[in-house]
Simulated scan of single mutants.
Amino acid sequence: MQAVVARSQASAEQAVAFIGAGQACCDLADLPAAQVWLLTVPDSQIAPLAATLAALHPAAAPALAFHCSGALTAQILDPLRALGWQTASAHPLLSFAQPARALAQFAGTPCALEGDASALFGLSVAFTHIGGRCFTLAAQDKLLYHAGAVLATNFMAVLQDLAERLWQHTGMPAELAQQMRATLLQNAVNNIVALGPQASLTGPAARGDWELVNRQAQALADWNAQASAAYTALSQLAGELARQTRQS
């Protein structure tokens, strides 16, 4: 690893210290020539970054450039591909909340690869070497694939926050509401892992108690309209899952 560029020198230095190698930079123009470029910026910045890199290195030897967006395809790197570069995307299906925690959790992580075939071979070797389990993803499937990742991870935090706010709103002590993260939530996750989503489904929608579902949705509407809409939509999906369970 030769260098890291970030929005600030301090951030670049933190990254280099964590990685344990490389030069910290805060300007793309200061980066040395490289054979592999990893672009880990917000999705909205990938296209501008690719265009800037292409403008800075129009005569550079062709290299491999890839980004780690789960939703965007390698096509967004076309300014570099036009220069003869190999382009791809590689998305590890892992919640990167904290670098050290993510590193400890990485072994066995699914890594969705998409892009030029020649680039995918090298990325598969690299990600497999650090413990990833690689598979190829079609470009047209990336949005649905990433939506699945959002449903499985990001929204769990949102739902847990809503649950804790409701419990505290109804008088549960804050420490008990927080304790539910390590008991009720953990038990639910353990059941899903052990039994699968269908067999671990519980609650009024799973029982077909739609009168209670509707009453709870109305009570939620008086507290938070968005929470009520989410509860209603998720209850409908839970009912469909319960019907599939009974039919299987």
Results as ranks from 00 to 15, higher is better:
Arg207Gly: 01
Leu94Thr: 07
Ala97Trp: 00
Ala54Ile: 09
Glu13Leu: 10
Leu234Glu: 11
Gln218Asn: 15
Gln160Lys: 03
Ala51Arg: 13
Gly203Ser: 07
His129Ala: 15
Met172His: 09
Ala3Glu: 11
Ala152Phe: 00
Gly70Leu: 03
Leu159Tyr: 06
Ala71Val: 08
Ala152Trp: 00
Ala15Tyr: 04
Leu123His: 11
Glu114Ala: 12
Ala54Tyr: 07
Ala206Phe: 03
Ala112Trp: 01
Ala139Pro: 01
Gly131Gln: 07
His146Ser: 02
Ser11Gly: 09
Asp43Lys: 03
Gln105Ile: 05
Leu77Cys: 08
Leu151Gly: 00
Pro204Glu: 12
Phe155Thr: 00
Leu80Ile: 09
Leu159Trp: 04
Gln9Thr: 05
Trp210Glu: 14
Met156Asn: 05
Phe121Asp: 15
Gly148Leu: 09
Leu28Thr: 04
Leu137Lys: 02
Ala55Phe: 04
Leu143Asn: 03
Thr202Gln: 07
Thr136Leu: 13
Gly196Leu: 06
Ala54Pro: 04
Ala51Lys: 14
Leu38Ala: 13
Met1Phe: 12
Ala205Ser: 11
Ser44Ala: 15
Pro58Ser: 08
Leu137Ser: 02
Thr183Asp: 14
Leu93Ala: 13
Ala71His: 06
Gln45Gly: 08
Ser200Val: 01
Ala17Glu: 13
Ala138Glu: 14
Gly115Tyr: 10
Ala17Trp: 06
Leu80Gln: 05
Pro62Ala: 12
Ala29Gly: 04
Ala6Asp: 06
Ser200Gly: 05
Ala55Tyr: 08
Ala227Thr: 09
Gln216Asn: 10
Ser44Pro: 00
Pro197Val: 04
Leu49Phe: 05
Ala12Thr: 07
Ala102Arg: 05
Asn154Arg: 01
Ser228Thr: 07
Arg246Gly: 01
Ser235Gly: 06
Leu237Gln: 15
Ala229Tyr: 05
Ala6Gly: 02
Val213Ile: 08
Gly132Glu: 10
Ala51Ser: 13
Asp27Lys: 14
Glu13Lys: 11
Leu162Lys: 03
Thr40Asp: 04
Ala233Ser: 13
Ala3Trp: 10
Ala47Gly: 07
Phe96Pro: 00
Thr170Met: 11
Leu93Arg: 02
Ser228Glu: 11
His129Pro: 00
Ala139Asp: 07
Ala177Arg: 01
Ala219Leu: 12
His57Tyr: 14
Leu80Asn: 04
Ala6Ile: 02
Ser118Asn: 12
Pro204Tyr: 08
Ala55Leu: 11
Leu212Pro: 00
Thr128Arg: 13
Gln236Trp: 11
